[in-house]
Computed example of a mutant assay.
Amino acid sequence: MPSDARLLLLDKNHVEALLLPDDVLQAVREAFLLHSQGEGRVFPVVREPLATGGVFGIKSGDVQAQGLLGFKAAGFWPNNRQLGGEPHQATIMLIDPATGRPVCILDGNAVTTMRTGAAGGLGLQQLARADSTRLCLFGTGVQARVQLSFALRLLPALAKVRYVTVDGKRDAAFEAEFAHHCEISPARDRNAAVSESDIVITATPGGGALFEPQSVQPGTHLNCVGADTKGKRELPQGLLERVRLFVDDQEQARQIGETQWAPDTPCIELGDLLTDKARVDRHPTDITVFDMTGLALQDLTVARLLHQRAGAAGIGSSIPWSW
C-alpha cells in the first residue's frame, strides 16, 4: 500500500485569496448544468438541531464521470456571535472516489457565501425583468452583502436599493460598501419597500415572514435565501400560490426551503432553464420566486477549482496522510 499520500489543507486565508467572483460564477453554473443533465448526483441532506443550540448539516454528492466526490459539513451556531465569531460554520472535504482517501480539506465559509451569491445572481439573470432598476434587500449580513454584490455585478441597470435591518436602524458600514454602485438607503416601511421594488432579496436567518403578501406587486422577482432548515421561512403564507416558482432542487426545496410550506406548488429547477430543458416566457405581470436551498454540487465544483488552483500555485499546507 502506498505510504506517501498527502492531504492538502486550505484555511480561511488561503480560500479567500483564491476565490474570484467570475470563476465562482462559472463553477456554480457548471453545478446547475451537471444537476440538470443527471451527471451530478445530490445525496440526501442531513440537517439536524443540536442540544448546544446549533444546527448541523451535511451536503454531499458526486460527479462520477469527473471523479469528483465530497461533502460539506456545515451549520449555524447563533451563540458564536457572543464569542466574536461567525455563526455560520462550514468545512468541505474532497475525496478520491477510487480509494475513498481524502485529498483536500478546506474552509467552507467563504465558499458557501460566494457560491450562494453566484447562484442568486444566476437566478436574477434568468428570472428578473431585464428593466429592473429597484431592489429591496432584507438583511445586511455576510449573505446579504454577497447577494447584493452579484446583483449589481450582473444587472447593471439596478440603481436604487432599499434595505431592511432586523432592528430597523441604519447600517452605515453596509451603505458605505455599496454607495459607489447604487443609491442605497434604509427602508422606512418594509411593505412599501417591497411594493416599490422590481426585485426582492431575502437573506435573513429565516425566523418568519418578512412582509405582507399583498405588498408583492405583479412583475416582481424574489430571491429567497434564508429558508434552509425545516421550520424556517421568510415568505408570508399564501404568496407561493400566486407565483411562478423556481428551485435549485425540487426534493430539497420541499424538505428545507420555502417550498416546505406549499409542497404541492408546481416548480421548475433553475438548472433546467440553463440547459434549455425548460423554457420560461416571462410575462411582465408574472411574480417569480427562486427558492434557494444550496446544492452540494456547487460546493464541490468550487472546491475542486480551489484545490487545482492551490496545487498549481503551491498554496496551502500539504501534510502526510499515510494509508
Results as ranks from 00 to 15, higher is better:
residue 304 R to Q: 15
residue 257 G to S: 04
residue 227 A to H: 04
residue 293 T to H: 00
residue 145 R to W: 03
residue 66 Q to Y: 07
residue 287 I to M: 13
residue 15 V to A: 09
residue 26 Q to R: 13
residue 320 P to C: 04
residue 141 G to H: 04
residue 149 S to E: 14
residue 123 G to I: 07
residue 167 D to R: 13
residue 166 V to Y: 10
residue 167 D to T: 14
residue 239 L to F: 11
residue 200 V to G: 01
residue 253 A to M: 06
residue 224 C to S: 15
residue 223 N to M: 08
residue 247 V to A: 06
residue 288 T to M: 00
residue 219 G to I: 01
residue 312 A to D: 12
residue 24 V to A: 06
residue 273 L to Y: 09
residue 32 F to K: 06
residue 142 V to T: 13
residue 218 P to M: 05
residue 198 D to V: 04
residue 268 I to C: 13
residue 227 A to Y: 05
residue 222 L to I: 15
residue 17 A to F: 01
residue 82 Q to I: 00
residue 180 H to E: 13
residue 281 D to C: 11
residue 275 T to I: 10
residue 46 V to Q: 11
residue 265 T to W: 00
residue 209 A to E: 12
residue 13 N to Y: 10
residue 236 P to S: 02
residue 54 G to T: 03
residue 17 A to D: 11
residue 281 D to S: 13
residue 137 L to C: 03
residue 288 T to P: 00
residue 4 D to C: 03
residue 311 G to K: 13
residue 61 G to K: 07
residue 79 N to G: 08
residue 48 E to R: 13
residue 252 Q to L: 12
residue 311 G to S: 14
residue 194 V to K: 02
residue 126 Q to P: 01
residue 101 R to G: 07
residue 10 L to A: 11
residue 300 L to Y: 05
residue 11 D to G: 13
residue 139 G to C: 02
residue 212 E to Q: 14
residue 125 Q to P: 01
residue 263 P to N: 08
residue 84 G to F: 08
residue 168 G to C: 07
residue 21 P to S: 05
residue 231 G to E: 02
residue 99 T to Y: 05
residue 266 P to A: 01
residue 68 L to V: 09
residue 98 A to V: 11
residue 181 H to S: 14
residue 11 D to N: 15
residue 286 D to G: 06
residue 33 L to Y: 10
residue 318 S to F: 02
residue 206 G to F: 06
residue 2 P to K: 14
residue 37 Q to H: 10
residue 162 R to Q: 15
residue 227 A to S: 15
residue 109 N to W: 00
residue 311 G to A: 11
residue 83 L to H: 13
residue 264 D to I: 00
residue 250 Q to W: 08
residue 284 P to T: 06
residue 231 G to H: 03
residue 194 V to D: 03
residue 201 I to G: 01
residue 30 E to R: 15
residue 7 L to K: 09
residue 80 N to L: 02
residue 135 L to D: 10
residue 206 G to R: 08
residue 278 A to F: 04
residue 68 L to N: 10
residue 279 R to L: 11
residue 216 V to S: 04
residue 217 Q to I: 01
residue 89 Q to G: 11
residue 198 D to M: 08
residue 270 L to D: 04
residue 229 T to P: 00
residue 73 A to D: 02
residue 14 H to D: 15
residue 290 F to T: 03
residue 29 R to A: 11
residue 120 G to E: 03
residue 86 E to T: 13
residue 30 E to Q: 15
